[in-house]
Amino acid sequence: MGIQRQTTNKESSRFTLPYRSRRILWLATLLVPPLLFFLTFVVYPMVTALIYSLYEWEGIGRVGFAGLENFRKLLFDQPFQGWTLNAFWHNVIVFVTLMIVQNGVALLLALLLGNDPWGTRFYQVVFFLPVTLALVLVGFQWRLFLNPLIGIVNRFFDVVGLEALSQPWLGQASTALFALIIVNAWRWVGFPTIVFLAAIRSIPYEYFEAARLDGANEWHVARHVTWPLIAPAVTIIVILTFIGSFNWFDLPYVMAGVDGPPGRATDVLGLYFYRTAFGEVSGGIQDFGRGSALAVLMFLFILLVSTFWTRILRSREVELS
């Protein structure tokens, strides 16, 4: 037994070692460069962000270890606490409103397109079009449209006799955030529409037929057949909308400004983080420590909530065999 094994080992080493080492070399050539790249530009910065948040910084220079001081300041010290809560609350509003307006409209459109009406392909291409345009572009476009005096939105309301709706939408605290959310919904609505539609199309036709034969009307079919069966798509859209809402940056930056005007009414965590890390327009101070702490908090919050929700939402999903 022992001898036999030795000989096979010898044999295999004589014949396969060159092959084996060639194979290892080839595999290393394939895997090492992407791995190094990933480590350098994703893993290392993510880990360092955590470490940075534990240090005291003067501007962009590291001074000394601070423990959880940066976190404490953000959450419990004024004025930081007020800014944090204000921005956080706006992100919550953004998420909830987008869920209702953007994803609600998307679901309706997908249900309609699910009937395969004439021109479905055309509608799909049109609804998805704004998704391909830069948020910066869309933001500037709508900032011009929403100009209180000469923008076409107010001009339109004047022409059709709805002067009451002629408002400085972006200029007053009561409407600015809402206007931004609507523009965001306009840009994004095609995305959930397509995702919902794909889910609806994957439902076997017999399911609808069986429900209709049992005398279900369109509402019942949508409520009791379509809705439960597109649950996986709903999960994905809820999570993506959540992540998107809490990373919201481009649109408020371009349409309102980095300070979240008027008077922080459009401030969100993305802007707040950017200001803390890289300074305000009006020569504000920058603090890499507090900025990193804020990033860590945002990351943990997004990760925890989306994991938790994925669990809950998954539990109501029905498997289609």
């Binding site: 895997l31 992407p34 791995l35 990933f38 350098t40 530009f41 994703v42 893993v43 290392y44 910065p45 993510m46 360092t48 962000a49 940075y52 962009i60 992540i243 990373n247 940056f249 983080f273 890390a277 890499f288 900025g291 990193s292 990033a295 860590v296 945002m298 990351f299 997004i302 990760l303």
Partner: peptide, 24 residues
């Protein structure tokens, strides 16, 4: 393991690591 390691990057929003990226 390596496959899942790469996939973990899907969960990490790189813009939140922009400060260390900047220094690096």
């Amino acid at each position: 393991f390596l496959y899942l390691f790469f996939l973990s990057g899907l969960m990490l929003p790189l813009r939140l690591a922009v400060i260390p990226l900047f220094v690096q």
